[in-house]
Design a protein around this nucleic acid. Structure first.
Length: 322
DNA sequence: TTTTGGCCTGACGG
DNA sequence: ACCGTCAGGCCAA
């Protein structure tokens, strides 16, 4: 069953894989080197996807699916929301904001992924007070413990993200706590139970058709979901592209560049949180969440200091201990 | 309404 | 070796 590469026409200014898949939106993608090429390997919509970035197109393979009737190109286009043309929007955002314009030079082709809401909810409950590498390992554990096997690739097994029902069992909290989830174990288990009581995945999907603010309020009734996590979910899996998740990065950026009056402000109160969001919504308009993500990526990369070579403008990190 | 600690864990620097 | 701090917050008081 040798799968062949398929081609999705798409210029790299419309989609930059590294910035989009490695920018803290999804925690399930990783870059591997295979046959001397960079491949992005990740799971979504219950399948394993392998992607390669070329100049004017994306090469892709889908593994672990049985029905051939499905239109995988359409699934991919939907995941990356390719109908929205960045070519139309980057110039507008650049005109409104010189800092955006500067960030956009390196961070072109940054897309908001249209993620599955269940995965998004539980991934971002894991994200609180946490760092990306640990969040990733926690999400992998959720999939491995409670998700279905998809297939093996490159000597590794990949798993679908679990159904809510499987995270709602009473045994889940202890298992997760024993596996290093800390206080988030309870939030995950309890939130799964509440969602099931509310009607399961369907309840989550209904949030897409509500107004942004109502959708957010509903999410915040779940345990472990405050304003920031709710905004992440609104933006990344419910189509509310005006949502602005204000995390510490965005808070620092806002303070430094956009809202100097916050200079003395120590903590992010609800009021300040909303002011920051409103500021960016007024600046960028109805797709503010998308635009802000470009700023976020630029800031994130500065501190992460990239994985390999192309890391020129940050101080060298000595990391090769063994 | 706003502000403060406490919470799990692991990596890092002094 | 050991401690304080930080990492994409949330919650209860």
């Amino acid at each position: 069953m040798k799968e062949v590469w398929r081609k999705l026409l798409c210029k790299n200014i419309e989609l930059q894989l590294v910035g989009t898949l490695n920018g803290g939106q999804s925690f399930r993608w990783k870059k591997i080197l295979k046959d001397d090429k960079d491949e992005w390997v990740g799971v979504f919509r219950n399948k394993l996807w392998i992607l390669q970035q070329e100049e004017d197109y994306i090469l892709y393979k889908v593994l672990g699916g049985s029905d051939k009737s499905e239109n995988s190109e359409q699934t991919l286009r939907d995941y990356f929301q390719l109908d929205l043309k960045l070519e139309d929007h980057y110039p507008i955002w650049s005109e409104k904001d010189p800092y955006f314009k500067e960030a956009a030079k390196q961070f072109y082709g940054i897309r908001i992924l249209n993620q599955e809401v269940t995965e998004n909810v539980f991934s971002f409950i894991c994200s609180s007070n946490n760092n990306i590498s640990r969040i990733s390992s926690m999400v992998e554990k959720l999939a491995k413990f409670y998700g279905k096997e998809i297939c093996e690739y490159n000597n590794e097994m990949y798993y679908a993200f679990p159904e809510v029902e499987n995270l709602a069992d009473d045994s889940v909290e202890k298992k997760l706590r024993d596996n290093g989830f800390g206080y988030r174990a309870k939030y995950i288990n309890r939130t799964a139970q509440i969602i099931v009581e509310n009607g399961g995945k369907k309840w989550l999907e209904k949030l897409r058709n509500m107004e942004y603010i109502d959708s957010k309020k509903n999410l915040m009734t779940l345990t472990g979901i405050g304003a920031k996590v709710a905004d992440c979910i609104c933006l990344m899996s419910l189509g509310h592209l005006q949502a602005i998740p204000v995390d510490t990065h965005i808070y620092q950026i806002a303070k430094r560049l956009y809202m100097p009056k916050l200079h003395q402000q120590k903590t992010v109160t609800d009021k300040i949180y909303n002011e920051i969001g409103d500021h960016f919504r007024e600046l960028y308009g109805p797709l503010a969440g998308w635009a802000h993500t470009v700023l976020f990526c630029a800031d994130l990369k500065k501190f992460q200091g990239n994985n390999e070579k192309e890391d020129t403008n940050t101080k060298p990190k000595k990391k090769n201990k063994k």
